[in-house]
Design a protein around this nucleic acid. Structure first.
Lengths: 252, 252
DNA sequence: CCTCATTCATTTGTCAGACAATTATGAAAC
DNA sequence: GTTTCATAATTGTCTGACAAATGAATGAGG
């Protein structure tokens, strides 16, 4: 990673493909609010005529938009392309795949991803303490119980860990936060799955989870922040140990 | 917003279009690592033959992948479709548009978006205090100076505000954080732009920016967190006031 | 008048074939 | 050796066509 900062989005107005141009125009219409959810776009034939291009070109443009789940299409008499209501599920899925690709295809190491994930989670703790609900506490209790089962596989342990933290973030009562955090956590799950937890590590994690649950119950945001820091350190230590063990395997 | 939590991603394996199926298969190959960055895909003719579909269908599939910036295409003898290195810029752009759409097309109010944005930013402050660099401080100083110009338009003030906060987050030295935060901040920029800042509000914001700069310079993470909270409250107050004024306009 | 099956028009999904535009490569001319 | 030009490969675009799906109009029968 040569540069940590995000460079300004490139503004190369290079003449894209026609299909890309058309997709951009329609996308802009949606963003500007000229086309709202469930609006029907003109038919492909009409679009091809109004843009002065062929139908395949229009179709490529529409497929681009469909790939971003901006529109959906339906066949038939009353069919056509309709503007999608941008659902959190879609956005979440998109972000998760993007995050996964970013972390797997790039030279982002586990420590960096982990640091980011816990930093973001830390930011939610005050809100979680404020808005937490009995439902969230129940989920977290349940997941802790699961994590205490000795015969749990590493994948199942990780999955339960994800569920626990999702509930923790959901407790903040802010869908935007849930969305971003869920995607971030999901994104590094493949990396987390590669960790083999020793029994002692699991016990440490569960103990922290219990402390987090208690602090959340008592609505002590400051303590939650500290506990998240502990958990981050614990996770990093475990990951480093796992990596060292893996390297030793390679040497042997 | 009926439900704050993100429901599990739907797993409907309904028989999509052919182009969607093909796109999914190629995408899976990329995610699995069978195709790595800068690998060249078979030509459209070869793909259409191997999948047993026509070239337009293959092209629609490729356009879908291009829309997610998973591939790029080049014409000519050595042209073709190449797997993109998933860059932070692309991911950032994608997230920004997704965030914008989510906030504009859905019933996420400004307060929720704002709360999320500042909560995430708050999570970065400890790291920023630790890793901050003279370069970041310089950018922030420069933006503060710009924000003090009385004849600045509201848009320009907002843009400078975004640049300031981007530098602040970049100071954490974690590209994943920069990526997520930049997208979040960018996503609510359209909403921020609708705010008309009174002179007094601007002065309050700039004063907080100065305090943030000072705390960052002194590497006092705890103080940064408090200041971010202040800034959040200030922003919310301004936004509410602006909304009330707007409503009063409507009534008149 | 109501109900149900049928037909029909509309629209997307897919295909085949063609030509234009672009780009590297290699051969030919100088 | 250098330049120029033809060539092949590949994506970009167009035309026209047919298949499949789907709601709406239509008409028969009750």
């Amino acid at each position: 990673m040569s540069d940590n900062s995000i460079s300004k989005p490139k503004h190369t107005d290079q003449p894209h493909d026609l299909s890309a141009q058309i997709a951009d125009e329609i996308r802009a219409s949606i963003v500007r609010g000229e086309l709202v959810a469930d609006d029907r776009l003109p038919s492909e034939a009409e679009l091809s005529e109004s843009y002065g291009v062929s139908r395949p070109t229009v179709r490529e443009a529409l497929k681009r938009l469909a790939a971003q789940s901006l529109i959906r299409t339906r066949r038939g008499a009353t069919g056509g392309a309709f503007v999608n209501r941008q659902s959190f599920e879609d956005a979440y899925r998109q972000m998760a795949t993007t995050a996964t690709l970013l972390l797997s295809l790039n030279d982002v190491d586990f420590a960096t991803a982990c640091e980011a994930r816990f930093a973001l989670e830390r930011g939610c703790m005050r809100l979680a303490a404020k808005h937490r609900d009995e439902a969230h506490l129940a989920i977290m209790r349940q997941e802790i119980a699961r994590q205490q089962q000795a015969d749990l596989s590493d994948e199942a342990f990780c999955a339960s860990d994800v569920a626990f933290h999702r509930a923790l973030v959901d407790a903040a009562g802010n869908p935007v936060l849930s969305w971003q955090l869920a995607a971030a956590v999901e994104g590094i799950e493949p990396l987390m799955n590669m960790i083999t937890y020793k029994q002692r590590d699991r016990e440490a994690v569960v103990a922290l989870h219990e402390a987090i649950l208690e602090a959340l119950e008592s609505r002590i945001g400051a303590r939650l922040e500290i506990l998240i820091d502990y958990l981050r350190d614990q996770t990093l230590r475990t990951a480093l140990a796992a990596r060292d063990a893996c390297q030793k395997d390679h040497e042997a």
